[in-house]
């Protein structure tokens, strides 16, 4: 079972307490009505599925109930780091440093 560090609780807790919530850093458009059908479809349906570093959202459902972001390696299935919503996407350097 994966151990996940909740950046709000600052604790490593078992995966059971968390729920996955899709790809991170996909902001809802400010004014959806101004978007073309294609643009809206892209926002709604199109997601990355990388081999390697993935930015994703989790929610500490059976804990603080807060959403947060995580960097997970989809090959090793290991969490590289977690960080709060609203924080910048970590740089490749930071990720490389945390991975080692």
């Amino acid at each position: 079972m994966m151990m996940i560090e909740c950046p709000i609780c600052n604790e490593k807790r078992p995966e059971l307490e968390f729920r996955y919530a899709g790809e991170a850093h996909i902001a809802r458009p400010e004014n959806p009505s101004a978007l073309s059908d294609d643009e809206w479809a892209k926002y709604l349906f199109i997601r990355n599925n990388p081999r390697g570093t993935h930015f994703e959202r989790w929610v500490h459902a059976h804990g603080c109930a807060k959403f947060f972001n995580a960097v997970r390696d989809t090959v090793s299935d290991k969490f590289v780091m977690t960080y709060k919503c609203g924080e910048q996407r970590p740089s490749p350097e930071t990720i490389a440093e945390r991975s080692s």
Partner: peptide
């Protein structure tokens, strides 16, 4: 509730 929290926390904090 999770749906509401999601939008409240992440889209409209």
């Amino acid at each position: 509730l999770a749906h509401m929290e999601d939008y409240l926390q992440t889209e409209w904090p």
